[in-house]
Amino acid sequence: MDLLRTLGDRTLERLSGLGRASIMWGHAVWGLPTLRELPLVIRQIYNFGVLSIVIIILSGFSIGAVISLQFYTQLSRFGAEDAVGLGLALVLLRELGPVMTGLLFAGRAGSAVTAEIGLMKTTEQLSSMEMMGVDPLRRIVTPRLWAGVISMPLLAAMFNVVAIYGGLIVAVQWLGGDEGGYWSGMQENVEIWNDLGKGVVKTVIFALLVTWIAVFQGYDTDPTPEGIGLATTRTVVTSSVMILAVDFILTLSMYGEF
């Protein structure tokens, strides 16, 4: 009986959490920032985007180099080294670019946002904002949501470019492949909407997902030091799992019918 009750309690708790998160998300998305609030968005793009560039470039380079190395050694057994560029470009544009950027974004920017908002709540900055008649949703949540949606596709694009050059350095400079084949393989087969466009759509969805989870976890945290720590962990874990799960669903619906 007790077990049943805990189960019911847990379910209701999760449900109400999802409800609160959805209501907050709705408010934040509708609250399109006005021109006066633009500096807030710019400040957040700085936090999300500019400060994430280094980690994006470093991981993009290593991932491009590693995939290129693996593709090259396997494809050269069939004499198809020229397909390295194409394989790398498709893998990056369709899957790895959006997913890796999303995971790094969750770890780098998402956790920071949760901790920041959690601390604001703990130090009662949020309630004092309400007392002053400032809507904390508009002031705190909306700029972060929009900043995330703007910066993540740009970060993913940089990730892809750096990864393609990392792959080029390994396949051409190091392993001695043909540079012309590397580029022309891509240009002939990569399609602008089907590969690049759908990848960008994915990053926008991941950005909404990660910023939503991060902001909500911060907003909903227990106002204690442990609470902030827990919320930060939950942000990273939940966003990572959600990105991978949603990516599978998106891939299935985008590329499933062939």
Partner: peptide, 9 residues
């Protein structure tokens, strides 16, 4: 940052 991202695209 925005310029670099747009150029990458």
């Amino acid at each position: 940052f925005v310029l670099a991202g747009a150029l990458s695209l």
